[in-house]
Design a protein around this nucleic acid. Structure first.
Lengths: 206, 206
DNA sequence: TCGTCCGCTGGTCTTAGGACCTGCGGAGCA
DNA sequence: TGCTCCGCAGGTCCTAAGACCAGCGGACGA
């Protein structure tokens, strides 16, 4: 097993830090090595703990996230910006200042862990549609829209049913079920039914 | 999007409530509408806020979790008992008194959110072997005994990984992974990896 | 020593699953 | 009318998954 990714959590709300720590520390390849509640403290902790990735809220009293980013210009640490829909307008400047990506604070824990790994691996977490959405001030990313039938099939997948079982349950051919499965996998960006089932559980379907 | 599931958190330790709230509130379909640190306060909050689901610690000063359950006999609210391995002997009585399920306090956030959704959907979170083990007063959950390796593989399945991906993550052959999968499927009585993943989620693995 | 469990790995074989091609009819809308 | 979406279903094809056969060495306990 390789060294865990070392994380610093920077947010002025203890509740948020606690919540983040509670589930990030459960990931075996992630390790929270410190917390900070403002920009100055963040810089001090970064110097002390040399984290790989900083999860950084932009909106903080005193030295804010943008200020931190500007002072980290020559530091190899990767910064993942934690943002909310109402803070979207700060993100482009943060990216300009060197942040490697951003996520919404309401991101689910799996996706946050994945985001951390992605930027730690040297990639960035930006998509033109996401940037565009932020700049127009639109709310959180929309959920994929499944057709009623796809949703139904997904619900049955999330109960562990095979295509054969689903076809019998719905009174259609197995071929039809396969078609719905193929379509819904593409919509929710899942590679297979197992991932689809997990997605369904996370989204309260089935 | 449907209405979020409204939650009340009941635990005498502020730290626990805070941590729970921090990550449950991050789930878009869940909303923490209140907290209470003992049974009396819990009943008052339930009356005020009409939550869908109560996360309830059994062991509290004054009116405890069991007392709350007994007074909620005619309330439609669903109760998810938060327990620890050392409190296991209280669970059967709590279930008898109307709790819809129980989870261990060290459950990971995904599994907890899934548990909440499951009981909100009207299901229960009980397995005969889990109940049997609890009734005999054993400490650890009496789950099917997976070997350490099987458990590890199951955890990765529960993240949606393929056998190939798992073999790379663990540094073993795909053949070895398949063997572990075959063995763990038999142990947990699952027909395929999708069912195994769902089982893992329900049991706080991965 | 022997037996069991564990983790590792090879082999063979079948089939469920999924991608991607196709097309039908119905509904709704410009 | 034409287009899109939806649900339904056929086809071909490949491969991941899983069952079941086998065996190795190490650790542990009777």
């Amino acid at each position: 097993m390789t060294e865990p990714i070392r994380l610093l959590l920077v947010d002025d709300h203890p509740v948020v830090r606690q919540g983040l720590r509670a589930y990030l520390d459960l990931e075996p390849d992630l390790e929270v090595v410190g917390e900070a509640d403002d920009g100055e403290q963040a810089l001090a902790r970064i110097a002390e703990t040399a984290p790989d990735v900083v999860l950084l809220d932009l909106k903080m009293p005193g030295l804010d996230g943008q200020g931190v980013l500007e002072r980290l210009a020559d530091d190899p640490v990767r910064v993942l910006v934690l943002t909310s829909a109402t803070d979207g307008e700060r993100v482009p400047a943060a990216i300009e200042a060197g942040a490697a990506g951003f996520v919404y604070k309401d991101i689910d824990p799996d996706a946050l862990a994945a985001a951390v790994r992605t930027i730690h691996a040297g990639q960035t977490l930006l998509s033109p549609s996401a940037m565009r959405g932020l700049m127009t001030g639109s709310s959180a990313p929309p959920e994929p829209t499944l057709t009623p039938r796809e949703r139904q099939v997904l619900g049955l997948i999330a109960r562990g049913q095979t295509n054969r079982q689903i076809s019998r349950a719905l009174g259609v051919s197995e071929k039809t079920v396969k078609t719905h499965v193929t379509n819904l996998l593409r919509r929710i960006d899942a590679a297979d039914r197992t991932q689809a089932a997990l997605w369904a559980v996370r989204h309260g379907i089935g």
